[in-house]
Design a protein around this nucleic acid. Structure first.
Lengths: 188, 188
DNA sequence: GGGCGCATGTAATGAGTTACATGATTGA
DNA sequence: TCAATCATGTAACTCATTACATGCGCCC
Protein backbone atom coordinates (compact mmCIF):
# COMPACT_ATOMS: atom_id res chain seq x y z
CA UNK A 1 0.00 0.00 0.00
CA UNK A 2 3.02 2.21 0.48
CA UNK A 3 3.52 2.25 -3.24
CA UNK A 4 -0.02 3.38 -3.82
CA UNK A 5 0.67 6.46 -1.76
CA UNK A 6 3.83 6.98 -3.75
CA UNK A 7 2.09 6.81 -7.11
CA UNK A 8 -0.79 8.95 -5.99
CA UNK A 9 1.58 11.54 -4.64
CA UNK A 10 3.63 11.78 -7.78
CA UNK A 11 0.54 11.94 -9.94
CA UNK A 12 -0.93 14.61 -7.75
CA UNK A 13 2.01 16.84 -8.47
CA UNK A 14 1.69 16.33 -12.17
CA UNK A 15 -0.04 13.91 -14.47
CA UNK A 16 2.22 11.42 -16.19
CA UNK A 17 2.26 8.25 -18.19
CA UNK A 18 3.55 5.01 -16.72
CA UNK A 19 6.99 4.96 -18.19
CA UNK A 20 7.66 8.51 -17.16
CA UNK A 21 6.32 7.84 -13.70
CA UNK A 22 8.54 4.85 -13.17
CA UNK A 23 11.50 6.82 -14.42
CA UNK A 24 10.78 9.65 -12.07
CA UNK A 25 10.50 7.34 -9.09
CA UNK A 26 13.67 5.52 -9.95
CA UNK A 27 15.59 8.74 -10.17
CA UNK A 28 14.14 10.69 -7.30
CA UNK A 29 12.49 8.33 -4.89
CA UNK A 30 14.59 5.20 -5.02
CA UNK A 31 15.30 5.55 -1.34
CA UNK A 32 11.67 5.02 -0.32
CA UNK A 33 10.76 2.04 -2.45
CA UNK A 34 12.00 -0.81 -4.56
CA UNK A 35 8.98 -0.83 -6.84
CA UNK A 36 9.73 -2.48 -10.16
CA UNK A 37 8.38 -1.57 -13.55
CA UNK A 38 5.74 -4.26 -14.05
CA UNK A 39 4.50 -3.68 -10.53
CA UNK A 40 4.10 -0.01 -11.28
CA UNK A 41 2.10 -0.67 -14.44
CA UNK A 42 0.02 -3.22 -12.62
CA UNK A 43 -0.72 -0.89 -9.75
CA UNK A 44 -1.69 1.87 -12.13
CA UNK A 45 -4.27 -0.21 -13.95
CA UNK A 46 -5.58 -1.46 -10.63
CA UNK A 47 -5.92 2.07 -9.41
CA UNK A 48 -7.77 2.94 -12.55
CA UNK A 49 -10.27 0.17 -11.87
CA UNK A 50 -10.69 1.48 -8.37
CA UNK A 51 -11.48 4.91 -9.70
CA UNK A 52 -8.46 6.54 -8.12
CA UNK A 53 -7.01 7.71 -11.39
CA UNK A 54 -8.30 8.72 -14.80
CA UNK A 55 -6.58 7.69 -17.98
CA UNK A 56 -6.22 9.54 -21.24
CA UNK A 57 -4.54 7.85 -24.16
CA UNK A 58 -2.08 10.04 -25.94
CA UNK A 59 -0.56 9.48 -29.36
CA UNK A 60 2.37 11.40 -30.69
CA UNK A 61 3.20 10.61 -34.29
CA UNK A 62 3.83 6.93 -34.71
CA UNK A 63 5.40 6.39 -31.34
CA UNK A 64 3.87 3.95 -28.92
CA UNK A 65 0.72 5.40 -27.41
CA UNK A 66 0.96 6.60 -23.85
CA UNK A 67 -1.53 6.31 -21.07
CA UNK A 68 -1.52 9.52 -19.15
CA UNK A 69 -2.81 9.21 -15.60
CA UNK A 70 -4.32 11.93 -13.44
CA UNK A 71 -5.84 11.82 -9.97
CA UNK A 72 -9.58 11.71 -9.46
CA UNK A 73 -11.22 13.16 -6.38
CA UNK A 74 -11.35 9.71 -4.83
CA UNK A 75 -7.66 9.43 -5.52
CA UNK A 76 -7.09 12.77 -3.91
CA UNK A 77 -8.97 11.71 -0.79
CA UNK A 78 -7.14 8.43 -0.49
CA UNK A 79 -3.86 10.25 -0.95
CA UNK A 80 -4.62 12.55 1.96
CA UNK A 81 -5.55 9.63 4.14
CA UNK A 82 -2.54 7.51 3.29
CA UNK A 83 -0.26 10.49 3.65
CA UNK A 84 -1.48 11.17 7.16
CA UNK A 85 -1.05 7.56 8.12
CA UNK A 86 2.42 7.43 6.68
CA UNK A 87 3.57 10.58 8.39
CA UNK A 88 2.31 9.63 11.80
CA UNK A 89 3.46 6.04 11.71
CA UNK A 90 6.78 4.61 12.65
CA UNK A 91 8.03 1.25 11.43
CA UNK A 92 11.26 0.00 12.94
CA UNK A 93 13.94 -0.58 10.38
CA UNK A 94 14.90 -4.17 9.73
CA UNK A 95 18.51 -4.89 8.86
CA UNK A 96 18.91 -8.13 6.95
CA UNK A 97 22.63 -7.51 7.06
CA UNK A 98 22.51 -8.05 10.79
CA UNK A 99 21.74 -11.71 10.32
CA UNK A 100 25.30 -12.28 9.28
CA UNK A 101 26.59 -10.16 12.14
CA UNK A 102 24.67 -12.32 14.57
CA UNK A 103 26.62 -15.35 13.41
CA UNK A 104 30.02 -13.74 13.20
CA UNK A 105 31.33 -16.10 15.84
CA UNK A 106 30.75 -19.05 13.52
CA UNK A 107 33.68 -18.22 11.27
CA UNK A 108 37.34 -17.41 11.81
CA UNK A 109 37.93 -13.84 12.80
CA UNK A 110 40.19 -13.00 9.88
CA UNK A 111 37.56 -14.18 7.47
CA UNK A 112 34.90 -12.15 9.22
CA UNK A 113 37.05 -9.06 9.04
CA UNK A 114 37.77 -9.63 5.39
CA UNK A 115 34.12 -10.05 4.48
CA UNK A 116 33.00 -7.06 6.49
CA UNK A 117 35.67 -4.94 4.87
CA UNK A 118 34.14 -5.86 1.56
CA UNK A 119 30.79 -4.72 2.82
CA UNK A 120 32.28 -1.53 4.16
CA UNK A 121 33.80 -0.74 0.83
CA UNK A 122 30.50 -1.14 -0.93
CA UNK A 123 28.92 1.20 1.56
CA UNK A 124 31.59 3.78 0.93
CA UNK A 125 31.11 3.55 -2.79
CA UNK A 126 27.43 4.03 -2.34
CA UNK A 127 27.96 6.99 -0.06
CA UNK A 128 30.28 8.60 -2.56
CA UNK A 129 27.62 8.13 -5.18
CA UNK A 130 24.95 9.71 -3.01
CA UNK A 131 27.17 12.68 -2.38
CA UNK A 132 27.56 13.39 -6.07
CA UNK A 133 23.81 13.78 -6.52
CA UNK A 134 23.05 17.44 -7.12
CA UNK A 135 20.61 19.01 -4.67
CA UNK A 136 17.01 18.39 -5.60
CA UNK A 137 14.31 20.87 -4.98
CA UNK A 138 11.75 20.65 -2.23
CA UNK A 139 11.33 17.73 0.07
CA UNK A 140 13.38 15.45 -2.15
CA UNK A 141 16.57 16.95 -0.78
CA UNK A 142 15.47 15.86 2.68
CA UNK A 143 15.42 12.29 1.48
CA UNK A 144 18.92 12.43 0.11
CA UNK A 145 20.17 14.03 3.27
CA UNK A 146 18.45 11.24 5.17
CA UNK A 147 20.17 8.59 3.13
CA UNK A 148 23.55 10.22 3.53
CA UNK A 149 23.24 10.73 7.24
CA UNK A 150 22.03 7.18 7.67
CA UNK A 151 24.85 5.76 5.63
CA UNK A 152 27.44 7.71 7.58
CA UNK A 153 26.00 6.22 10.69
CA UNK A 154 26.02 2.72 9.28
CA UNK A 155 29.61 3.03 8.19
CA UNK A 156 30.62 4.19 11.61
CA UNK A 157 28.83 1.31 13.24
CA UNK A 158 30.38 -1.22 10.92
CA UNK A 159 33.82 0.19 11.61
CA UNK A 160 33.23 -0.36 15.29
CA UNK A 161 32.08 -3.90 14.69
CA UNK A 162 35.22 -4.64 12.70
CA UNK A 163 37.41 -3.04 15.32
CA UNK A 164 35.76 -5.06 18.08
CA UNK A 165 36.19 -8.19 16.08
CA UNK A 166 39.88 -7.58 15.56
CA UNK A 167 40.38 -6.81 19.17
CA UNK A 168 38.65 -9.99 20.18
CA UNK A 169 41.01 -11.81 17.87
CA UNK A 170 44.11 -10.27 19.35
CA UNK A 171 43.51 -10.85 23.00
CA UNK A 172 42.80 -14.58 23.38
CA UNK A 173 45.72 -16.05 21.48
CA UNK A 174 48.43 -13.51 21.18
CA UNK A 175 49.70 -15.19 18.07
CA UNK A 176 47.61 -15.93 15.08
CA UNK A 177 49.22 -13.96 12.38
CA UNK A 178 51.08 -16.51 10.37
CA UNK A 179 48.24 -17.15 7.99
CA UNK A 180 45.82 -19.98 8.64
CA UNK A 181 48.40 -22.57 9.51
CA UNK A 182 45.93 -24.77 11.30
CA UNK A 183 42.30 -25.25 11.99
CA UNK A 184 41.30 -26.31 15.43
CA UNK A 185 38.00 -27.66 16.53
CA UNK A 186 35.77 -25.99 14.10
CA UNK A 187 32.76 -28.13 13.46
CA UNK A 188 29.82 -28.38 15.72
CA UNK B 1 16.66 -16.58 1.46
CA UNK B 2 17.74 -14.32 4.28
CA UNK B 3 15.49 -16.24 6.60
CA UNK B 4 17.02 -19.51 5.59
CA UNK B 5 20.37 -18.24 6.76
CA UNK B 6 18.74 -17.14 9.96
CA UNK B 7 17.19 -20.51 10.69
CA UNK B 8 20.30 -22.41 9.74
CA UNK B 9 22.40 -20.20 11.97
CA UNK B 10 20.21 -20.59 14.98
CA UNK B 11 19.96 -24.34 14.49
CA UNK B 12 23.69 -24.57 14.09
CA UNK B 13 24.17 -23.13 17.53
CA UNK B 14 21.76 -25.57 19.06
CA UNK B 15 19.06 -27.89 17.83
CA UNK B 16 15.54 -26.79 18.53
CA UNK B 17 11.94 -27.44 17.71
CA UNK B 18 9.93 -24.99 15.68
CA UNK B 19 8.07 -23.23 18.41
CA UNK B 20 11.20 -22.69 20.41
CA UNK B 21 13.04 -21.50 17.33
CA UNK B 22 10.41 -18.94 16.49
CA UNK B 23 10.38 -17.76 20.08
CA UNK B 24 14.10 -17.36 20.09
CA UNK B 25 14.10 -15.35 16.90
CA UNK B 26 11.30 -13.13 18.08
CA UNK B 27 13.12 -12.33 21.28
CA UNK B 28 16.66 -12.03 20.06
CA UNK B 29 16.68 -11.41 16.36
CA UNK B 30 13.60 -9.33 15.70
CA UNK B 31 15.77 -6.59 14.33
CA UNK B 32 16.98 -8.66 11.38
CA UNK B 33 13.73 -10.15 10.18
CA UNK B 34 9.97 -10.01 10.28
CA UNK B 35 9.51 -13.74 9.78
CA UNK B 36 6.14 -14.93 11.05
CA UNK B 37 5.29 -18.21 12.70
CA UNK B 38 3.67 -20.05 9.81
CA UNK B 39 6.47 -18.97 7.53
CA UNK B 40 8.99 -20.35 9.95
CA UNK B 41 7.23 -23.72 10.12
CA UNK B 42 6.88 -23.76 6.40
CA UNK B 43 10.53 -22.96 5.81
CA UNK B 44 11.58 -25.66 8.25
CA UNK B 45 9.66 -28.38 6.47
CA UNK B 46 10.95 -27.14 3.15
CA UNK B 47 14.48 -27.27 4.45
CA UNK B 48 13.87 -30.77 5.63
CA UNK B 49 12.83 -31.80 2.14
CA UNK B 50 15.96 -30.19 0.79
CA UNK B 51 18.07 -32.21 3.17
CA UNK B 52 19.39 -29.19 5.02
CA UNK B 53 18.02 -30.29 8.36
CA UNK B 54 17.22 -33.56 10.09
CA UNK B 55 14.13 -34.02 12.18
CA UNK B 56 13.61 -36.07 15.29
CA UNK B 57 10.18 -36.28 16.82
CA UNK B 58 10.14 -35.87 20.55
CA UNK B 59 7.33 -36.69 22.93
CA UNK B 60 7.19 -35.59 26.50
CA UNK B 61 4.30 -37.04 28.41
CA UNK B 62 1.07 -36.26 26.67
CA UNK B 63 2.09 -32.84 25.50
CA UNK B 64 2.05 -32.06 21.82
CA UNK B 65 4.93 -33.80 20.08
CA UNK B 66 7.82 -31.62 19.03
CA UNK B 67 9.87 -31.79 15.91
CA UNK B 68 13.44 -31.17 16.84
CA UNK B 69 15.59 -29.92 13.98
CA UNK B 70 19.34 -30.22 13.59
CA UNK B 71 21.66 -29.23 10.76
CA UNK B 72 22.92 -31.77 8.27
CA UNK B 73 26.26 -31.41 6.55
CA UNK B 74 24.53 -29.96 3.52
CA UNK B 75 22.86 -27.46 5.83
CA UNK B 76 26.21 -26.63 7.32
CA UNK B 77 27.71 -25.99 3.91
CA UNK B 78 24.83 -23.81 2.79
CA UNK B 79 25.04 -21.89 6.04
CA UNK B 80 28.68 -21.10 5.44
CA UNK B 81 27.96 -19.95 1.93
CA UNK B 82 24.99 -17.79 2.82
CA UNK B 83 26.84 -16.33 5.76
CA UNK B 84 29.72 -15.24 3.59
CA UNK B 85 27.37 -13.69 1.09
CA UNK B 86 25.45 -11.88 3.77
CA UNK B 87 28.53 -10.49 5.45
CA UNK B 88 30.13 -9.19 2.30
CA UNK B 89 26.99 -7.73 0.79
CA UNK B 90 25.49 -4.36 1.31
CA UNK B 91 21.86 -3.54 0.61
CA UNK B 92 20.86 0.09 0.88
CA UNK B 93 18.16 0.67 3.44
CA UNK B 94 14.76 1.64 2.14
CA UNK B 95 12.68 4.01 4.24
CA UNK B 96 8.98 3.70 3.51
CA UNK B 97 8.46 6.52 5.97
CA UNK B 98 10.21 8.81 3.55
CA UNK B 99 7.35 8.57 1.11
CA UNK B 100 5.30 10.76 3.36
CA UNK B 101 8.21 13.14 3.85
CA UNK B 102 8.49 13.54 0.11
CA UNK B 103 4.94 14.85 -0.01
CA UNK B 104 5.08 17.05 3.04
CA UNK B 105 4.42 20.11 0.92
CA UNK B 106 0.99 18.75 0.03
CA UNK B 107 -0.51 19.47 3.44
CA UNK B 108 -0.63 22.48 5.76
CA UNK B 109 2.51 22.91 7.77
CA UNK B 110 0.85 22.67 11.17
CA UNK B 111 -0.69 19.39 10.21
CA UNK B 112 2.62 18.08 8.99
CA UNK B 113 4.29 19.07 12.21
CA UNK B 114 1.56 17.47 14.26
CA UNK B 115 1.76 14.18 12.39
CA UNK B 116 5.53 14.04 12.51
CA UNK B 117 5.47 14.72 16.23
CA UNK B 118 3.28 11.67 16.57
CA UNK B 119 5.83 9.68 14.65
CA UNK B 120 8.63 11.08 16.75
CA UNK B 121 6.89 10.06 19.90
CA UNK B 122 6.52 6.50 18.70
CA UNK B 123 10.20 6.43 17.92
CA UNK B 124 11.06 7.63 21.38
CA UNK B 125 8.88 5.01 22.96
CA UNK B 126 10.55 2.38 20.88
CA UNK B 127 13.98 3.67 21.79
CA UNK B 128 13.12 3.63 25.47
CA UNK B 129 12.02 0.05 25.06
CA UNK B 130 15.24 -0.93 23.33
CA UNK B 131 17.24 0.63 26.10
CA UNK B 132 15.58 -1.47 28.75
CA UNK B 133 16.68 -4.68 27.07
CA UNK B 134 19.35 -6.28 29.22
CA UNK B 135 22.65 -6.93 27.48
CA UNK B 136 22.68 -10.15 25.52
CA UNK B 137 25.72 -12.29 25.17
CA UNK B 138 27.87 -12.51 22.09
CA UNK B 139 27.05 -10.90 18.80
CA UNK B 140 23.43 -10.29 19.75
CA UNK B 141 24.46 -7.28 21.77
CA UNK B 142 25.93 -5.79 18.61
CA UNK B 143 22.50 -5.95 17.03
CA UNK B 144 20.83 -4.11 19.85
CA UNK B 145 23.51 -1.50 19.86
CA UNK B 146 22.97 -1.17 16.14
CA UNK B 147 19.26 -0.62 16.58
CA UNK B 148 19.77 1.93 19.32
CA UNK B 149 22.38 3.88 17.43
CA UNK B 150 20.27 3.86 14.32
CA UNK B 151 17.20 5.01 16.16
CA UNK B 152 19.08 7.85 17.80
CA UNK B 153 20.12 8.92 14.38
CA UNK B 154 16.61 8.69 13.00
CA UNK B 155 15.22 10.72 15.83
CA UNK B 156 17.78 13.38 15.29
CA UNK B 157 17.01 13.52 11.61
CA UNK B 158 13.29 13.74 12.19
CA UNK B 159 13.81 16.56 14.67
CA UNK B 160 15.66 18.46 12.00
CA UNK B 161 12.91 17.83 9.49
CA UNK B 162 10.32 19.13 11.91
CA UNK B 163 12.43 22.16 12.74
CA UNK B 164 12.91 22.95 9.06
CA UNK B 165 9.23 22.61 8.49
CA UNK B 166 8.38 25.00 11.29
CA UNK B 167 10.91 27.46 10.10
CA UNK B 168 9.45 27.37 6.64
CA UNK B 169 6.09 28.04 8.23
CA UNK B 170 7.32 30.92 10.34
CA UNK B 171 8.97 32.98 7.70
CA UNK B 172 5.95 33.58 5.47
CA UNK B 173 3.57 34.36 8.32
CA UNK B 174 5.51 35.48 11.33
CA UNK B 175 2.92 34.30 13.85
CA UNK B 176 1.73 30.84 14.24
CA UNK B 177 2.96 29.60 17.61
CA UNK B 178 0.18 29.87 20.15
CA UNK B 179 -0.45 26.18 20.26
CA UNK B 180 2.58 24.28 21.40
CA UNK B 181 4.28 26.99 23.37
CA UNK B 182 7.67 25.61 22.58
CA UNK B 183 9.77 22.51 22.65
CA UNK B 184 13.44 22.97 22.89
CA UNK B 185 15.86 20.49 21.58
CA UNK B 186 16.39 18.53 24.72
CA UNK B 187 18.27 15.34 25.00
CA UNK B 188 18.11 12.74 22.43
C1' DG C 1 -14.55 -24.77 33.44
C1' DG C 2 -12.47 -21.10 30.87
C1' DG C 3 -8.60 -19.06 29.02
C1' DC C 4 -3.81 -18.91 28.11
C1' DG C 5 0.46 -21.09 26.58
C1' DC C 6 2.47 -24.95 24.12
C1' DA C 7 2.92 -27.07 19.53
C1' DT C 8 2.02 -27.76 14.78
C1' DG C 9 0.32 -26.95 10.76
C1' DT C 10 -3.14 -25.92 6.28
C1' DA C 11 -5.64 -23.08 3.01
C1' DA C 12 -6.68 -18.97 0.90
C1' DT C 13 -4.89 -14.98 -0.52
C1' DG C 14 -2.10 -11.53 -2.05
C1' DA C 15 1.86 -9.00 -3.21
C1' DG C 16 5.69 -8.47 -6.00
C1' DT C 17 9.40 -10.32 -9.07
C1' DT C 18 11.40 -12.36 -13.35
C1' DA C 19 11.11 -13.54 -17.65
C1' DC C 20 8.89 -12.97 -21.69
C1' DA C 21 6.42 -10.51 -25.65
C1' DT C 22 5.68 -6.70 -28.76
C1' DG C 23 6.76 -3.01 -31.70
C1' DA C 24 8.18 1.59 -33.06
C1' DT C 25 11.99 5.28 -33.10
C1' DT C 26 16.63 7.03 -32.72
C1' DG C 27 21.48 7.16 -32.88
C1' DA C 28 26.08 4.87 -33.86
C1' DT D 1 21.85 -2.51 -39.41
C1' DC D 2 22.23 -3.17 -34.65
C1' DA D 3 21.57 -1.74 -30.18
C1' DA D 4 19.33 1.15 -27.05
C1' DT D 5 15.38 3.74 -25.59
C1' DC D 6 10.50 4.43 -25.56
C1' DA D 7 6.16 2.26 -24.07
C1' DT D 8 3.16 -1.20 -22.38
C1' DG D 9 1.94 -5.13 -20.70
C1' DT D 10 1.15 -10.72 -19.62
C1' DA D 11 2.22 -15.12 -17.47
C1' DA D 12 4.45 -17.93 -14.36
C1' DC D 13 6.34 -18.13 -10.21
C1' DT D 14 8.03 -17.27 -5.53
C1' DC D 15 7.39 -15.75 -1.28
C1' DA D 16 5.08 -14.51 2.76
C1' DT D 17 0.96 -13.26 5.32
C1' DT D 18 -3.61 -13.86 7.48
C1' DA D 19 -6.93 -16.52 9.03
C1' DC D 20 -8.20 -20.77 10.37
C1' DA D 21 -7.88 -25.56 12.61
C1' DT D 22 -6.50 -28.70 16.21
C1' DG D 23 -5.63 -30.41 20.74
C1' DC D 24 -3.33 -31.08 25.15
C1' DG D 25 -1.72 -29.12 29.77
C1' DC D 26 -1.75 -25.81 33.34
C1' DC D 27 -3.42 -22.33 36.31
C1' DC D 28 -7.09 -19.58 38.42
Amino acid sequence: MKDKLLLLGVLKQSEMHGYQLYDFIEQNLASCTTLKKPSAYFLLSKMEQEGLVQVVEQRIGNRPPRKVYRLTQAGERLFQQLLQENLSQFTPTVFPGDIGIAFLDQIPIEQGVRLLRKRLQKMQVHLAHLETIPPHRGSASLLIKHQIQHLHNEIQWLREVIADLQEAGNLPQAQKDNEFSHQDSSSN
